[in-house]
Design a protein around this nucleic acid. Structure first.
Lengths: 204, 204, 204, 204
DNA sequence: CATGAATGAGCGTTCATTCAT
DNA sequence: TATGAATGAACGCTCATTCAT
């Protein structure tokens, strides 16, 4: 009985944390990180401002959690794609495509990652770790491609970083060149250059 | 006489705006965007806080200007590099190298570009314009390379965007993989993949 | 049976109150009055925050009780000292010495007495009563000394108040002049002046 | 002209600081230290909350200043009394009387001195310094009395501390024994015991 | 009677912008 | 045009008390 109520409590707590995470994410996606004030969050989650502090130490912990969750979901999906039994170039294409899709929905969350205000020592380290995991999935995929002879013997970490950069740039698309392209087309475009490069070898 | 004093006034105004821009840039580079308070700026520029509003509508306009100036200088330099009489791959290498160098000095300014707080309707448009100019230089270079047969017939805007993304990712280097590399080495790495791609064609 | 369970209930209640008092005192002595939050108290007493309100009206009542208990113990000890069969000046010396000792251990509790935040109407009256008891012990001792001819015919309440003041000042020792003195030395010093005064009568 | 406006500015600033000090003091005397919120203060001083921060770094600085001013005025008065050309016992009587008068008006300010919340490292040191100055005036007076043969060769610092304690106790008068006495009578009472002690020497 | 999450008023402080001088 | 003090809304966070379970 005690164990039951203990479990109940944990479930309620976990549920509350999830609600707060989801509400926070919703607000960030709608209003940006500056729209996420504690009062705003509490109101939207239909609790009081003070209540939030029963579940989180402070605002930073909430934001960290939201980011971590987003990253977690992203990594899970990428790992699935990366683990499929298809040629390497298809895996990379799938990764790119997924990121384009995800980003178009989660753009504001990714913005937070870029916001220097949230680069404190602690979270900086977490960011680096998260990034490393992301890179590891891609570089692992590339490493496999090299081992299987599908890819050149490039530095996997470099190739992975570069791949990420290409995808990110088309995602953000500051100049609005690719806003008419869907994720499939964008992934095609990235892969075209990423696989073959731009140099005309035959011309040499 | 009226015209003369009119001109004088404009010169004074222009001088004032420049001073404010330069001071703002100095502060951002030193303290980050959050260190740029109007009071701080006014004090460092040796004017009064209220005075700033005689030359600028609001803080956003100042930040926009600083960004624009930074962009302007960057574009000038890249145009020079792009205009040199060397093979296309050397031009692109030079562009990458310059950006790595510039970024390591101006990191804090580039941070601002990534900060969604400064993405309002008005400045968003300006950002897009600036970005387009940057892309145009690179895509122009690429177009020339295609015309001269040095490069494949890729979409120049796409190739330029992708190039930018690669460079940006290695610049930011969230995971800290490349912090030991200097700009020359980074540019080498980027070009390696950018020119040849990662696919092992011979294996097919 | 009803009476028995009634008694049981009262015992449980009394036990609960004592636990809360003791825990509060421990916290105050360790962390100061500001460390005594209801949550902190409840956790350390291993009960729930809400439960405390079954035994006390509010926080103030708890603090009042802690103070009263402290006072009670102090008074008991002073009464013992005062009741001893020794010359009056030795009794007073003993009282002073005990207070110095007590204070050095209970400093944080005495701080609370000085803190105006806890001077509400209700507790003010209680404070006055407690104080009066303390004064009564000392003034009683003095009265005895007067009756026995050991002391001048001073006003006992005045002499007692003044005695308390002297002791308190050396206890608190804001300027840190006497921090090297132990309780014996401090009591010696107090008695030296208290008994003989500072005036040089022979000089007149 | 520049000097004039500079002076003007300083005067205005000084005036503002004084207003804030006086308002703060008024509030503390009326409502206690907890009544002194920044909003409250600003409202009563008829300025905005933000304005206060043009003249003071933070709330602590204001409280420190109020205390310092109070102390300063007290010390000035005591020095005047102490410097008079009268017998030592009259000086001490005057000091006691003044303190009784002052305290009856400034009780709430003295409370702040006793409030542990305002005992941070920095202000603790200031408190000790202030206290030392107060003690020095009294101990100086006593020293003169000793040199002139009016007083015994007691330790001046001890005698001064003890004197302060006696006065303080009658000032605070927790038990309410002396609330009917005016400052003259209280000073008489203190001096009676302080000069001659309570011991009946003749009886020995 | 025990629980402990929910409450919500209240705190000190910041800073872009305004405006009387 | 220059000044810089005044503004005031907004922020994250605390904690004694309440009350549904």
């Amino acid at each position: 009985m005690a164990r039951l109520s203990q479990k109940m409590k944990e479930m309620v707590t976990e549920n509350m944390r999830r609600t707060i995470f989801e509400t926070s994410e919703k607000i960030i996606l709608r209003d940006g990180i500056d729209g996420l004030t504690m009062e705003h969050l509490a109101h939207e989650a239909e609790i009081s401002a003070g209540s939030v502090y029963n579940y989180f130490e402070n605002k930073e912990e909430i934001i960290d959690g939201v980011m971590k969750n987003m990253f977690h979901r992203l990594l899970e999906n990428l790992e699935t794609i990366s683990g499929a039994n298809v040629p390497t170039h298809e895996k990379l294409h799938g990764i790119a495509k997924f990121m384009f899709d995800d980003f178009s929905q989660k753009r504001r969350l990714f913005d937070v990652l870029m916001d220097r205000r949230h680069f404190h020592k602690h979270s900086k380290k977490k960011r680096a770790e998260g990034h490393m995991k992301l890179l590891n999935i891609i570089s692992g995929t590339i490493k496999n491609g090299i081992d299987s002879g599908e890819l050149h013997a490039v530095e996997p970490e470099l190739a992975a970083s570069v791949f990420l950069g290409m995808v990110r740039e088309l995602q953000i698309d500051h100049a609005g060149i690719f806003k008419k392209c869907n994720s499939q087309e964008l992934a095609d475009k990235v892969m075209l250059i990423y696989l073959s490069g731009i140099e005309n070898k035959g011309a040499k």
